[in-house]
Amino acid sequence: MAFLEVKDLKVHFPIKGGIFGRTVDHIKAVDGVSFELEKGKTYGLVGESGSGKTTTGRAIIGLNNITSGSVTYEGQDITNIRRAKSSVRKDIQMIFQDPYSSLNPKKRVLDIVAEPIRNFESMTKKEERIRVQELMELVGLSPESILKYPHEFSGGQRQRIGIARAVALKPKLIVADEPVSALDVSVQAQVLNFMQDIQKELDLTYLFIGHDLGVIKHMCDHIGIMYRGRYVEEGTVNDIFTNPQHIYTKRLVAAIPDIDPNKRAEQRAFRKEVQTEYEQSFNDYFDEEGLAYDLKPISDTHLVALPEKG
Protein backbone atom coordinates (compact mmCIF):
# COMPACT_ATOMS: atom_id res chain seq x y z
CA MET A 1 0.00 0.00 0.00
CA ALA A 2 1.38 3.33 -1.01
CA PHE A 3 1.62 6.11 1.52
CA LEU A 4 -0.20 8.53 -0.76
CA GLU A 5 -1.65 7.46 -4.05
CA VAL A 6 -2.96 9.83 -6.66
CA LYS A 7 -4.92 8.14 -9.39
CA ASP A 8 -5.98 9.68 -12.68
CA LEU A 9 -6.34 13.10 -11.07
CA LYS A 10 -8.14 15.71 -13.13
CA VAL A 11 -8.66 19.32 -12.23
CA HIS A 12 -10.58 21.28 -14.85
CA PHE A 13 -11.43 24.93 -14.57
CA PRO A 14 -14.49 26.17 -16.45
CA ILE A 15 -14.15 28.93 -19.05
CA LYS A 16 -17.20 31.17 -19.03
CA GLY A 17 -18.30 32.63 -22.30
CA GLY A 18 -21.20 33.68 -24.48
CA ILE A 19 -23.94 36.13 -23.61
CA PHE A 20 -25.23 34.25 -20.60
CA GLY A 21 -21.81 33.41 -19.19
CA ARG A 22 -22.32 29.70 -19.52
CA THR A 23 -19.42 27.31 -19.29
CA VAL A 24 -18.24 26.96 -22.86
CA ASP A 25 -15.06 25.00 -22.30
CA HIS A 26 -12.62 23.80 -19.69
CA ILE A 27 -9.00 24.54 -18.96
CA LYS A 28 -7.56 21.15 -18.24
CA ALA A 29 -5.04 22.30 -15.63
CA VAL A 30 -4.42 18.76 -14.51
CA ASP A 31 -5.57 16.04 -16.86
CA GLY A 32 -5.05 12.49 -15.73
CA VAL A 33 -2.12 12.45 -13.35
CA SER A 34 -1.18 9.38 -11.33
CA PHE A 35 1.69 8.89 -8.91
CA GLU A 36 2.55 7.36 -5.57
CA LEU A 37 4.54 8.76 -2.66
CA GLU A 38 6.75 6.56 -0.57
CA LYS A 39 6.86 7.22 3.15
CA GLY A 40 9.85 9.24 4.34
CA LYS A 41 10.91 10.14 0.80
CA THR A 42 10.77 13.29 -1.23
CA TYR A 43 8.87 13.30 -4.48
CA GLY A 44 9.58 16.13 -6.86
CA LEU A 45 6.91 17.48 -9.14
CA VAL A 46 8.55 19.51 -11.88
CA GLY A 47 7.26 21.57 -14.74
CA GLU A 48 7.27 25.01 -16.25
CA SER A 49 4.63 27.63 -15.59
CA GLY A 50 1.24 26.37 -16.67
CA SER A 51 2.21 22.71 -16.38
CA GLY A 52 -0.29 22.06 -13.59
CA LYS A 53 2.23 21.13 -10.90
CA THR A 54 0.99 23.65 -8.36
CA THR A 55 -2.64 22.83 -9.11
CA THR A 56 -1.89 19.17 -8.43
CA GLY A 57 -0.43 19.99 -5.03
CA ARG A 58 -3.28 22.31 -4.16
CA ALA A 59 -5.85 19.73 -5.23
CA ILE A 60 -4.34 17.12 -2.90
CA ILE A 61 -4.55 19.47 0.04
CA GLY A 62 -8.06 20.57 -0.90
CA LEU A 63 -7.36 24.08 -2.16
CA ASN A 64 -8.57 23.24 -5.66
CA ASN A 65 -11.63 21.16 -6.46
CA ILE A 66 -10.91 17.78 -7.95
CA THR A 67 -12.89 17.14 -11.13
CA SER A 68 -12.28 13.40 -11.18
CA GLY A 69 -9.84 10.80 -10.02
CA SER A 70 -8.91 9.77 -6.52
CA VAL A 71 -6.41 10.50 -3.78
CA THR A 72 -5.75 7.77 -1.24
CA TYR A 73 -3.80 8.37 1.95
CA GLU A 74 -2.72 5.31 3.91
CA GLY A 75 -5.57 3.35 2.39
CA GLN A 76 -8.26 5.94 3.10
CA ASP A 77 -9.94 7.80 0.29
CA ILE A 78 -9.28 11.50 0.83
CA THR A 79 -10.33 12.79 -2.56
CA ASN A 80 -12.66 15.13 -0.75
CA ILE A 81 -10.18 16.09 1.92
CA ARG A 82 -12.28 18.91 3.34
CA ARG A 83 -14.77 16.29 4.49
CA ALA A 84 -12.10 13.84 5.58
CA LYS A 85 -11.47 13.00 9.22
CA SER A 86 -9.59 15.66 11.10
CA SER A 87 -6.82 13.20 11.91
CA VAL A 88 -6.10 12.94 8.20
CA ARG A 89 -6.28 16.68 7.65
CA LYS A 90 -3.80 17.12 10.49
CA ASP A 91 -1.40 14.76 8.79
CA ILE A 92 -1.15 16.72 5.54
CA GLN A 93 0.14 20.28 5.61
CA MET A 94 1.48 22.77 3.11
CA ILE A 95 4.40 25.18 2.77
CA PHE A 96 3.79 28.06 0.40
CA GLN A 97 6.04 29.75 -2.11
CA ASP A 98 6.12 33.30 -0.95
CA PRO A 99 7.04 33.78 2.70
CA TYR A 100 6.16 37.46 2.35
CA SER A 101 2.51 37.07 1.43
CA SER A 102 1.65 33.74 3.05
CA LEU A 103 2.00 35.01 6.61
CA ASN A 104 -0.66 37.40 7.91
CA PRO A 105 1.27 40.62 8.65
CA LYS A 106 -1.14 41.64 11.39
CA LYS A 107 -0.67 38.51 13.46
CA ARG A 108 2.12 37.72 15.88
CA VAL A 109 4.27 34.69 15.19
CA LEU A 110 2.68 33.01 18.19
CA ASP A 111 -0.77 33.26 16.60
CA ILE A 112 0.45 32.27 13.16
CA VAL A 113 2.18 29.12 14.36
CA ALA A 114 -0.56 28.26 16.85
CA GLU A 115 -3.35 28.59 14.30
CA PRO A 116 -3.39 24.92 13.20
CA ILE A 117 -3.07 23.85 16.85
CA ARG A 118 -6.13 25.89 17.73
CA ASN A 119 -8.03 24.37 14.83
CA PHE A 120 -7.31 20.78 15.66
CA GLU A 121 -6.26 20.44 19.27
CA SER A 122 -7.52 21.82 22.50
CA MET A 123 -4.64 23.18 24.49
CA THR A 124 -4.48 25.68 27.28
CA LYS A 125 -2.84 28.99 26.51
CA LYS A 126 0.21 27.91 28.45
CA GLU A 127 0.57 24.54 26.73
CA GLU A 128 0.10 26.23 23.40
CA ARG A 129 2.80 28.77 24.15
CA ILE A 130 5.24 26.07 25.19
CA ARG A 131 4.47 24.09 22.03
CA VAL A 132 5.05 27.15 19.84
CA GLN A 133 8.33 27.87 21.61
CA GLU A 134 9.42 24.30 20.99
CA LEU A 135 8.53 24.66 17.35
CA MET A 136 10.48 27.90 17.08
CA GLU A 137 13.48 26.18 18.50
CA LEU A 138 12.98 23.30 16.10
CA VAL A 139 13.13 25.66 13.11
CA GLY A 140 16.16 27.43 14.55
CA LEU A 141 14.51 30.65 15.65
CA SER A 142 14.75 32.05 19.13
CA PRO A 143 11.75 31.08 21.32
CA GLU A 144 11.62 34.63 22.64
CA SER A 145 10.67 35.93 19.21
CA ILE A 146 7.12 34.51 19.29
CA LEU A 147 5.65 37.90 20.11
CA LYS A 148 7.18 39.54 17.03
CA TYR A 149 5.41 40.22 13.76
CA PRO A 150 6.40 38.68 10.38
CA HIS A 151 7.93 41.89 9.02
CA GLU A 152 10.57 41.75 11.72
CA PHE A 153 12.04 38.63 10.14
CA SER A 154 14.13 38.08 7.03
CA GLY A 155 12.88 36.04 4.07
CA GLY A 156 14.55 32.84 5.18
CA GLN A 157 13.33 33.23 8.72
CA ARG A 158 9.81 33.82 7.49
CA GLN A 159 9.92 30.69 5.43
CA ARG A 160 10.98 28.85 8.57
CA ILE A 161 8.00 30.31 10.41
CA GLY A 162 5.89 28.92 7.56
CA ILE A 163 7.53 25.56 8.13
CA ALA A 164 6.96 25.78 11.89
CA ARG A 165 3.28 26.32 11.18
CA ALA A 166 3.24 23.40 8.76
CA VAL A 167 4.88 21.00 11.24
CA ALA A 168 2.94 22.23 14.29
CA LEU A 169 0.57 19.27 14.19
CA LYS A 170 3.33 16.72 13.60
CA PRO A 171 2.14 15.99 10.08
CA LYS A 172 3.30 13.06 8.02
CA LEU A 173 3.10 14.62 4.61
CA ILE A 174 4.06 18.13 3.57
CA VAL A 175 3.20 19.60 0.21
CA ALA A 176 5.92 22.17 -0.40
CA ASP A 177 4.98 24.49 -3.26
CA GLU A 178 8.15 26.14 -4.55
CA PRO A 179 9.33 26.74 -0.99
CA VAL A 180 12.61 28.40 -1.98
CA SER A 181 11.81 30.12 -5.27
CA ALA A 182 11.45 33.54 -3.68
CA LEU A 183 14.69 33.27 -1.70
CA ASP A 184 18.31 34.20 -2.30
CA VAL A 185 20.76 31.35 -2.82
CA SER A 186 22.34 31.46 0.62
CA VAL A 187 18.92 31.61 2.28
CA GLN A 188 17.71 28.90 -0.03
CA ALA A 189 20.52 26.66 1.18
CA GLN A 190 19.45 27.33 4.76
CA VAL A 191 15.84 26.35 4.13
CA LEU A 192 16.69 23.29 2.05
CA ASN A 193 19.10 21.98 4.67
CA PHE A 194 16.55 22.58 7.31
CA MET A 195 13.83 20.78 5.39
CA GLN A 196 16.11 17.77 5.11
CA ASP A 197 16.93 17.86 8.82
CA ILE A 198 13.36 17.86 9.98
CA GLN A 199 12.47 15.24 7.44
CA LYS A 200 14.83 12.89 9.25
CA GLU A 201 13.72 14.05 12.64
CA LEU A 202 9.98 13.73 12.06
CA ASP A 203 10.01 11.04 9.37
CA LEU A 204 8.28 13.38 6.94
CA THR A 205 7.27 12.74 3.38
CA TYR A 206 7.54 15.68 0.99
CA LEU A 207 5.76 16.43 -2.20
CA PHE A 208 8.23 19.02 -3.45
CA ILE A 209 6.88 21.20 -6.23
CA GLY A 210 9.48 23.20 -8.09
CA HIS A 211 10.90 24.44 -11.34
CA ASP A 212 14.58 24.73 -10.41
CA LEU A 213 16.04 21.41 -11.46
CA GLY A 214 19.19 21.96 -9.43
CA VAL A 215 17.13 22.19 -6.27
CA ILE A 216 14.92 19.28 -7.30
CA LYS A 217 17.91 17.09 -7.96
CA HIS A 218 19.37 17.98 -4.60
CA MET A 219 16.21 17.27 -2.65
CA CYS A 220 14.26 14.51 -4.33
CA ASP A 221 14.28 10.73 -4.57
CA HIS A 222 11.64 10.43 -7.24
CA ILE A 223 10.65 12.96 -9.85
CA GLY A 224 7.63 13.48 -12.05
CA ILE A 225 7.83 15.85 -15.00
CA MET A 226 4.63 17.58 -16.03
CA TYR A 227 3.75 19.36 -19.24
CA ARG A 228 0.37 20.96 -19.92
CA GLY A 229 -1.45 19.04 -17.22
CA ARG A 230 -0.02 15.64 -18.01
CA TYR A 231 2.98 13.56 -17.05
CA VAL A 232 5.72 13.19 -19.63
CA GLU A 233 8.15 11.20 -17.55
CA GLU A 234 8.58 9.75 -14.11
CA GLY A 235 11.49 8.06 -12.44
CA THR A 236 14.25 8.20 -9.87
CA VAL A 237 16.64 11.14 -9.83
CA ASN A 238 19.08 9.02 -11.76
CA ASP A 239 16.55 7.99 -14.38
CA ILE A 240 15.59 11.56 -15.04
CA PHE A 241 18.97 13.27 -14.96
CA THR A 242 21.24 10.69 -16.51
CA ASN A 243 18.83 8.84 -18.75
CA PRO A 244 15.99 11.15 -19.80
CA GLN A 245 13.90 9.47 -22.47
CA HIS A 246 11.21 11.95 -23.38
CA ILE A 247 12.30 14.80 -25.60
CA TYR A 248 10.64 17.31 -23.29
CA THR A 249 12.65 16.07 -20.31
CA LYS A 250 15.83 16.09 -22.37
CA ARG A 251 15.25 19.68 -23.32
CA LEU A 252 14.47 20.65 -19.74
CA VAL A 253 17.60 18.98 -18.39
CA ALA A 254 19.72 20.48 -21.16
CA ALA A 255 18.48 23.95 -20.30
CA ILE A 256 19.92 23.93 -16.77
CA PRO A 257 22.79 26.40 -16.71
CA ASP A 258 26.05 24.61 -16.03
CA ILE A 259 28.04 26.02 -13.16
CA ASP A 260 31.33 25.14 -14.85
CA PRO A 261 32.37 27.88 -17.30
CA ASN A 262 34.76 25.50 -19.03
CA LYS A 263 31.89 23.40 -20.32
CA ARG A 264 30.24 26.39 -21.91
CA ALA A 265 30.81 25.57 -25.57
CA GLU A 266 30.05 21.93 -25.03
CA GLN A 267 26.83 22.74 -23.21
CA ARG A 268 25.77 25.15 -25.93
CA ALA A 269 26.35 22.63 -28.69
CA PHE A 270 24.49 19.97 -26.74
CA ARG A 271 21.56 22.29 -26.17
CA LYS A 272 21.38 23.13 -29.88
CA GLU A 273 21.37 19.47 -30.70
CA VAL A 274 18.55 18.77 -28.25
CA GLN A 275 16.60 21.76 -29.55
CA THR A 276 16.87 20.49 -33.11
CA GLU A 277 15.75 17.07 -32.00
CA TYR A 278 12.88 18.62 -30.08
CA GLU A 279 11.68 20.52 -33.11
CA GLN A 280 12.04 17.58 -35.46
CA SER A 281 10.48 14.93 -33.26
CA PHE A 282 7.82 16.96 -31.46
CA ASN A 283 5.06 15.15 -33.34
CA ASP A 284 6.48 11.79 -32.38
CA TYR A 285 6.23 12.55 -28.70
CA PHE A 286 2.97 14.47 -28.53
CA ASP A 287 -0.49 13.81 -29.96
CA GLU A 288 -2.39 16.06 -32.40
CA GLU A 289 -3.34 18.45 -29.60
CA GLY A 290 0.26 18.71 -28.49
CA LEU A 291 -0.40 16.74 -25.31
CA ALA A 292 1.67 13.95 -23.87
CA TYR A 293 0.67 10.29 -24.32
CA ASP A 294 0.03 7.90 -21.42
CA LEU A 295 3.02 6.72 -19.40
CA LYS A 296 4.64 3.43 -20.37
CA PRO A 297 7.16 1.67 -18.12
CA ILE A 298 10.64 1.23 -19.57
CA SER A 299 12.15 -0.11 -16.35
CA ASP A 300 10.98 -0.84 -12.79
CA THR A 301 11.17 2.79 -11.79
CA HIS A 302 11.18 4.66 -15.04
CA LEU A 303 8.01 5.62 -16.93
CA VAL A 304 7.87 7.64 -20.11
CA ALA A 305 4.95 9.04 -22.08
CA LEU A 306 5.44 7.39 -25.43
CA PRO A 307 2.94 6.69 -28.21
CA GLU A 308 1.59 3.15 -28.69
CA LYS A 309 4.11 2.12 -31.29
CA GLY A 310 7.64 3.01 -30.13
Binding site: V185, S186, Q188, A189, L192, N193, Q196, D212, L213, G214, V215, K217, H218, M219, F241, I256, D258, I259, D260
Partner: peptide
Protein backbone atom coordinates in the same frame (compact mmCIF):
# COMPACT_ATOMS: atom_id res chain seq x y z
CA UNK B 1 25.49 27.14 -1.25
CA UNK B 2 24.18 26.43 -4.75
CA UNK B 3 22.77 22.97 -5.37
CA UNK B 4 25.14 21.83 -8.07
CA UNK B 5 23.62 19.63 -10.70
CA UNK B 6 26.96 18.04 -11.53
CA UNK B 7 27.90 16.49 -8.25
CA UNK B 8 25.95 15.08 -5.35
CA UNK B 9 26.22 17.14 -2.20
CA UNK B 10 25.18 16.03 1.19
CA UNK B 11 24.64 19.40 2.74
CA UNK B 12 24.59 22.82 1.20
CA UNK B 13 26.75 25.46 2.76
Amino acid sequence: SVPNSNEAQDKLH
